[in-house]
């Protein structure tokens, strides 16, 4: 196979790829910004003692976790304008979809962290006269958050990988730019390889960091949740 590699064409358009990467990070960042607080709220509601709150919230979380994000994105992108009459850009559709989609996963991370805290901690807080909210804020969450960090970062990695789907609704993220350049230059092998390498360059350090953190938390006997 005498294929002649030519990365020159990729680097001529490298600024476009970088712009795509910035857009990828933008969607990821915004989805985090909305998804994390929403996830915490969903987790607290799912831990409610009242079935009328707990059960519907549980179903919403399960639904978001059990359907492909691509279907969610298409649904929102095509359905929202028809249902509400508001035209939304691919960018907004993406941010909204991934905020909701990731919030369901963050909710499970939060819930896992909260239920991993020993019953004795709730009891001690209760015994000095704290109510449920105070116990949660002062005693349970500060401990739970520490255990959740690795699982949380893993979700961030997954989220960034999932944002590639925005390319399918023509939002100019890294993958979309790569596809465009590949078609224009007839050099898909080089372009897609470089694009993959760029994702790897961002995600691999985070992965390494997660692993180191898990080892450290594991060693001090604090444990982590998944």
């Amino acid at each position: 196979m005498g294929y002649e590699w030519d990365f020159g064409v990729v680097f001529r358009d490298f600024d476009l790829l970088l712009l795509g990467l910035v857009n990828t990070l933008k969607v990821t960042g915004l989805a985090l910004l909305f998804g994390v607080p929403l996830g915490l709220i969903l987790a607290l509601l799912r831990l409610s003692r009242h079935g009328v709150i707990r059960i519907p919230v549980g179903i919403v979380i399960e639904f978001l976790r059990s359907t492909p994000p691509l279907v969610q994105l298409f649904w929102l992108f095509f359905a929202l304008p028809i249902l509400t009459g508001i035209n939304i850009t691919p960018f907004i559709a993406s941010v909204v979809t991934f905020s909701f989609q990731s919030s369901a996963f963050f909710a499970e991370v939060f819930r896992g962290g909260i239920v991993s805290i020993e019953k004795g901690q709730w009891e001690a807080a209760k015994a000095i006269g704290m109510d449920r909210g105070q116990s949660m804020r002062r005693v349970i969450l500060p401990q739970a958050v520490k255990r959740m960090i690795p699982a949380f970062l893993e979700r961030v990695i997954e989220l960034m990988k999932t944002t590639t789907l925005v390319a399918t609704v023509s939002y100019a993220d890294l993958l979309y730019e790569a596809n465009t350049i590949a078609q224009a230059t007839f050099r898909p092998l080089e372009v897609f390889t470089v694009a993959a390498a760029m994702y790897f360059a961002v995600l691999f350090p985070v992965s390494l960091f997660v692993r180191r953190l898990e080892r450290r938390l594991g060693r001090t006997g604090e444990g982590t949740v998944h």
Partner: peptide, 20 residues
């Protein structure tokens, strides 16, 4: 009840100190 708990101290078998 919260008011009662605040005026009655309790010490547990497993201490249950707040580790953070």
């Amino acid at each position: 009840l919260i008011g009662i708990r605040a005026t009655v101290g309790m010490v547990f078998q497993h201490f249950n100190l707040f580790p953070h």
